[in-house]
Design a protein around this nucleic acid. Structure first.
Lengths: 213, 213, 213, 213
DNA sequence: GATGAATGAGCATTCATTCAT
DNA sequence: TATGAATGAATGCTCATTCAT
């Protein structure tokens, strides 16, 4: 499930509109996501972004109030995309799966979102920490929503719900292992499913060994 | 072992030098490490850095040829610091330790370097990917040296040397879990040793489960 | 013939355009030519130039990619202006004029371009040698085109075509005498036609005496 | 006569002093002359100059009060060098030479000074016009002294003394032809004596033709 | 005589932003 | 919707200069 609906997707997709790749709002967001992900927030200039969508820098201001606002939208789409993707996979799996299986599913969905997504989620992960405070604070609640999914997932694992600090560390270690892949994953060399399996074994091993720890 | 010698540490520290706390080369490096770590490479301006060490922006150029060169030095000190710290801990443990114990030691040393170090190592980890190509290429060999330590460490684990792709993924997952802590670790709330234990369990569980996987 | 068309002159001059005297591209070029000629390339700052056309330094970059690029355009206009002026005078004289007369015509046209031109040609002559290599190399072909006119002119003089090294020296001596006037010519004191006559006598004397030399 | 005494030559030349090419006043002047000639006044930085003589920029201030003062000295040496060289050649020729021969001698001496001189005279000719007003005004009298030699030389030619404006133009044309050689003379390709002959013919032809003009 | 270390002013350039059209 | 043209602030960097040592 890789092309979940975008929150801003109001215009009819596929209807006979003249949306021939010219600079619509969505084109800007797409290009911004890609550039943010590739070069970072600071290193992405609005001129370059405008250029990428075939317009002039000033024109972007018809669509977005500021670079910060644009970043907020891009990064929000990014979190929402993972959130939706993970939720959808989990729901699709139905109620009869073990907590461990649920974690495995989430690992795969998260990886899928950051590695094969259009760039929104990876832009979020790579840029968020380097973004102005105003951007970060606007994103806190959406980020929290996603975080809560993982908190729930981990808590269900082998009684971890009763050791919240440990659960927190396991969650952050898992997400670290997942997110860090943005810095090294090479589609030509690495296989996503292989890595998913590695991370899955990591976390399940850890939570399993806990009793004897 | 948290205060390993800095590669550039030639002048006697603590002897009666006239270093009146003002901006010497080392002061600049220290402040740069801190700022790079806090705000990122792009967002750190030389004026701000100069201000932090009590001088004017142009004066920095007496000590460093360019912002890039300064970044190269800061980040190089950063890798060398972890490299030395991990090596030293490993050596101190002596030859009679199991591969699993060696990994545990490395995990702790790495965490220590990024979380309680003066900022050089964390600056490296946070800034490197957003740094100009010229900076990155100058750092490749020192980075490789550190990487090789981990490659060796993981290879010794339960026959992982014979499954290099899997070993690579385990190494990267571990380092991801470790490095990502820079984004969330809160000295007031989190205990480093606790997290080290979590990561240690993760990786050891993963490598142990492999046989039965 | 002092107001030959500028190579970049595409917009209607004098028509009812809203060019309210503020800094359009042409205004910048004009002011740059004047400043380059007066103070030299290095001593002309973009702030000063911008000021001269009533804008801020950064605004110049909307019109020109860099100071070097601006210099290239100014100096190119300068050579093209003399080239066109000399060519036009020569053509206007028709085919029935002697080689000596042709040289006389060229001397006057060249002098006119450097002394009463808007400053482009004199900017070229005064700045070119002190300009960055990147600027010089971009101008080589236009300069060559002008040079060739003179080479042809001199070669036709009293069999000079068969003594190319001597012809070269005569050409360069003539152009030296002409160009150097930029360093001393004083419109209040000197008469252009008087000086033209002097230089004309110089070169014609020299080429005539050659046989007996 | 190419190594006339320098006005600043106070230290014993050839005596057993430790003047081993280290940064003495004379070394600075020599290097400054060379750099000024090659790159121009503005483009020559004191750091670069200091580097060329093996010292640090600040040390130059022990020897010279400012860049302007240094330029004044270099350029003054330059004019004095031509002045002395031309005078000496003229004196050496004795009283029995014709005005035309005297001009020929001066042409050669001038050319020699700008083309094979250590760089002082050529630095003067190339830099003077781009030098700050303070520098120019300090040089006016030495320049005038040299100018007067040429004025006298030309005035003696075929009754030119009675047509001062014409004499002035002939003088400036001659010096223009001579000085401009700095922009094109190539020691590998051009022969100084050849060019001297060309210029000599130019001026003598011009002044001779004057009667019939 | 010369240096290490700094400064203040300036430079070319880039950037997010504005706004009349 | 978008652009052309501009702005103000900032950036990395260079320069002539200073001065205690």
């Amino acid at each position: 499930m890789s092309s979940e609906a975008h929150p801003t997707d109001t215009q009819a997709r596929g209807s006979g509109r003249k949306n021939r790749g010219n600079g619509s709002r969505r084109d800007i967001l797409d290009a911004a996501a890609r550039l943010f992900q590739q070069k970072g927030y600071d290193a992405t200039s609005l001129r370059e972004l405008a250029n990428a969508v075939g317009m002039k820098a000033g024109s972007l201001y018809y669509h977005f109030a500021s670079k910060e606002q644009l970043a907020i939208e891009v990064l929000a789409i990014g979190v929402k995309a993972v959130t939706d993707n993970v939720s959808a996979h989990l729901k699709a799996a139905g109620p009869g799966v073990t907590p461990q299986q649920r974690v495995s599913i989430a690992i795969r969905a998260h990886l899928e979102s950051i590695l094969s997504d259009g760039g929104y989620t990876s832009a979020h992960i790579r840029c968020f920490p380097y973004t102005p405070e105003a951007v970060q604070s606007q994103l806190r609640t959406v980020r929290r929503t996603y975080e809560d999914i993982w908190t729930g997932l981990i808590d269900d694992l082998a009684g971890l719900g009763e050791r919240p600090e440990e659960a927190r560390h396991i969650r952050l270690a898992t997400l670290g292992a997942l997110n860090w892949s943005l810095e090294w994953f090479d589609a030509e060399r690495d296989d996503m499913e292989d890595y998913a399996r590695t991370v899955e074994r990591l976390i399940i091993g850890a939570s399993g060994n806990v009793n004897s720890g």
